[in-house]
Amino acid sequence: MNTYPNTEAKPKEVTGKSKIMGILNSRKVVPYIFVAPFLISFLVLTLYPAIQGIIMSFQSILPGQVNFIGLENYSRVFNPAFYDAFWNTTIYVVITVIVLTIIPMLLAVALNSKIIYFKAFFRASLFIPALTSTIVGGMIFRLMFSGQETSMANQFIGILGLDPVNWRFNAWSAMFLMTILAAWRWIGVNILYFLAALQTVPEELYEAADIDGASKYQKFIHITVPQLKPIIIFVSTITIINGFRMFEESFVFWEDGSPNHIGLTMVRYIYQEGIQQNDLGFGAALGVILMMIIFIISIIYLILTGSFKKEDA
C-alpha cells in the first residue's frame, strides 16, 4: 500500500505524517494506487515480452551469445513442418467451430423447450467435462481409443462390423481424437451461452409466427437463428482463437511428437522449436506469425459484429 512515491520530507513529524496520509487517502491518488498492480503487471508481463518477442524473432539466441541475424528466422518459417502445423490447426479450427457452435445451439434449443424435464441434470452432466484438465480428459480418451482390439472404441466399431483402428497413428483418426476431446470438454459450456441468449428472444415473435401458421422448423430458421446471431459470432470466434492456441490436446496424445506431424499444431510447433530444440529466436518468429494470424481473425470478428459501426454512433 505504501509504495506511492513519497516526495514529502520528514515523515516522523506528526503533521508530515498526516499530510502523507492525506495524500495517500485523497481521491485523486487512491485509484492509481489501486490500479498500480495492474500497470506493473502489464509492463513486465505483457508489454516487455511483446516487444522482447519481436526483438528475439530477429536474433539467434544461444546461451551467452545473442546475435542479430535479420530476417533469417522468418525466411526459415515457411517450411514443410510449418505448413503441416498450419494445415492441422486450420482443419482443427474448422471442425471445432462447426461442432462447438451447431451442436450446443441445437441442444440448447431442445433444452429450452417446455417438454424437457431433466434440465438441471442435463446441464450439470454436460458441464462436468469442462472441469477436467485436458491432460486427464485426454488420458481417458487415450485409453478408450487405444489401438488394441480390446479398447472400447474398437469394440464399439467392431459391433458395426468395422476393423480395429490404431487411433493415434492415422492422420484422420488423430484429428478425430483431438477434436472429440475438445468437443467433449466445451459443448456444455457453449450450451450455457446459447441458453442465456435464448432467454432474450422475445416470446411475441414466436406467437406471431404461430398465428401465421409457421412450422417448428421454420420458426427455428427464421426466428431463433437470426436472434442468436450475436452469440453465434461470439462462440465461434472464441472457438477459432482457442483453436489457434491449441496445444494440450496434441501433447496429451503424442507426448514425444507425432508420427508424420499428424498431431502437430501451431503452438506445438512453437514449443517444439523454441523449447525442445532451444531455438528461442525461431520460436519467437513463429509466435509473431501466429499473432498476426489471430490479429487478422479478431479484426474480421469486429467487422462481422459491427463493433466499428457502434463507435461512430
Binding site: P49, A50, Q52, G53, I61, F247, A284, G287, L290, M291
Partner: peptide, 17 residues
C-alpha cells in the same frame, strides 16, 4: 488488449525473462 493477446505468443520471451 491483454485479453485479446494469447498467452502462447508471449510465453517464449517470458520464459527467457
Amino acid at each position: 488488449l491483454i485479453l485479446m493477446i494469447p498467452f502462447e505468443i508471449l510465453m517464449l520471451p517470458l520464459f527467457q525473462l
